[in-house]
């Protein structure tokens, strides 16, 4: 797994629950070191073990932890670069939703070795969408829900998100855009790049 995923997860856990929780989680996961580097590659098995470790230590379902993780990487100031890169996807939230089809390709353009599962958006009625995520990475869909929640907030849109289980190897998220311009949203300008120094 790309170190960026583990590194981001580490920052999320130690920032939200404290360094000690992270250290204990790596122990529970049976990993002999504590700090991950964003620009190195690690064994595929580490990531699910780390997620399980954190879930055990916090006594919270993994799905819930992952959803918070998704929200964290979009809304935390240290990850401003992630928010900005996602905002390039569209001028409003619905536009952004449509850009999710290309998200894995876009990410690969930036980081050749970071292979995210493909996600495809399908219209499901007026202002309603189904996002079908390949389940090549366990729990990815829950991270996506957290990301979508934070991005809706960023765009100032009011949305409902619901995980609808798995259909034919794809995890399904049901999205209802209640109002596109519900709130002010956060400012975004194309030329305002403040690059992340955290990852």
């Amino acid at each position: 797994m790309h170190g960026l995923v583990n590194r981001s997860f580490q920052l999320f856990v130690s920032d939200t629950f404290g360094r000690e929780v992270w250290e204990r989680s790596t122990q529970v996961a049976g990993i002999s070191f504590v700090d991950f580097e964003g620009m190195l590659t690690y064994k595929e098995t580490y990531t699910p073990r780390l997620i399980e470790g954190v879930s055990t230590i916090l006594d919270r379902p993994a799905a819930e932890v992952l959803e918070d993780f998704g929200t964290f990487i979009v809304s935390h100031p240290k990850f401003e670069a992630v928010r900005r890169l996602l905002r390039f996807g569209g001028v409003d939230f619905v536009d952004f939703l449509h850009s999710l089809d290309d998200l894995d390709d876009r990410v690969r353009l930036a980081l050749k070795n970071l292979n995210l599962p493909n996600a495809a958006l399908h219209a499901a009625g007026e202002n309603q969408f189904l996002l079908l995520c390949e389940n090549t990475i366990n729990g990815y869909c829950h991270v996506m829900i957290g990301v979508l929640r934070a991005m809706a907030d960023d765009y100032g849109a009011l949305v409902l998100l619901e995980h609808r289980g798995t259909q034919e190897d794809k995890e399904v998220v049901f999205i209802t855009v209640v109002e596109s311009n519900f709130a002010e949203g956060r400012h975004f300008s194309l030329g305002g790049g403040a690059y992340a120094d955290a990852i």
């Binding site: 900005r84 353009l109 930036a110």
Partner: peptide, 15 residues
């Protein structure tokens, strides 16, 4: 292009 410049800059600075 703007997206790529920003993404690459972030990746480069991490590297």
């Amino acid at each position: 292009m703007l997206y790529l410049v920003e993404a690459k800059t972030a990746a480069m600075s991490a590297s």
